[in-house]
Amino acid sequence: MPKKEIKKIIFNTGKSLWKLFPLILGTILLVSLVIKLIPKSFYFTIFEGHYLISSFAGSLIGSISVGTPVTSYIIGGELLEKGTNLIAVTAFLVAWVTIGIIQLPAEIKILGKKFTFLRNIIAFISSIIIALIIGLIFNLI
C-alpha cells in the first residue's frame, strides 16, 4: 500500500477518534458527577437483589442507553469499582453494545421489520443469559 494511502488511514482514524472526543470527555464528566452525586446505596437498590432482577435491570438500562462501547466500558467499569454486582454490569454492557435502539429505523429499512424486532428481542434475552453464565463462571450465583 502506498505511503499516501497509509497517511490517509491514519488521518481518517484520527478524525473518527476526534469525533468521539467530546462524547468521551462529556461522558467522563457526567460519570464523575453522577458517581459523586448519587450515593452508593442507590446503585445497590437498582442493581442488587435477586440475580434475575439485577440482570434484567442491567439489560433494560443498557438497551435503552445510546452511545459508543467506550462509554459503556467507562460507566460499567466505574459502577463495578463502586461495588455494583458483576451480573448486572455484564447485562448492562452486553445490552448496550448489542441492542441498537438508535439504528432501528435503518435496520428495519434494510433488513426488514420482522428480522429487526426478532434480533433485538433475542439480543435482549441473550444479554440476561450471558450475564447469568458469567455469574455462574465467577461463582456469583
Binding site: K19, L20, L23, G26
Partner: peptide, 8 residues
Amino acid sequence: NWYFLIIT
C-alpha cells in the same frame, strides 16, 4: 457530540 460536551 459537541453539544453534549457543552451541555455537560
